[in-house]
């Protein structure tokens, strides 16, 4: 149970990083950090309540977070190169 609370409290500085961060890259970094943290929350939740099928959710978050981060960064780089 203490792990769940620790993870939930760790969400707050990441949100501060996302909202405050001086560059775009900080925000994208914060997004990937939040997705990792949510994977851990899902696993802990499923192990606490003995729900095995919830580990599917963790795989979903891993794959989708990766795809979204790759998409946003590649599009930002493409834009920068085009406008130079």
């Amino acid at each position: 149970m203490y792990i769940l609370w620790a993870m939930l409290i760790f969400l707050i500085p990441y949100l501060v990083l996302i909202v405050r961060g001086p560059t775009v890259w900080d925000r994208i970094l914060g997004m990937s950090l939040v997705s990792t943290k949510i994977i851990i929350i899902v696993i802990i939740f499923s192990s606490l309540n003995h729900l095995d099928y919830l580990t599917d959710f963790a795989i979903i978050y891993v794959l989708l977070g990766f795809i979204v981060t790759f998409f946003i960064t590649t599009f930002l780089v493409t834009r920068k190169k085009r406008e130079k």
């Binding site: 996302i18 775009v24 914060g30 997705s35 979903i60 946003i72």
Partner: peptide, 28 residues
């Protein structure tokens, strides 16, 4: 771009709260 990043994080957090409230289909 900031709005898109906020939206992704928003959907992650709403998904995990759906899961904790007990509706895994909607969360997925």
């Amino acid at each position: 771009i900031r709005i898109v990043i906020y939206l992704c994080v928003f959907s992650f957090i709403s998904s995990i709260s759906f899961l904790i409230l007990g509706s895994p289909d909607a969360a997925m």
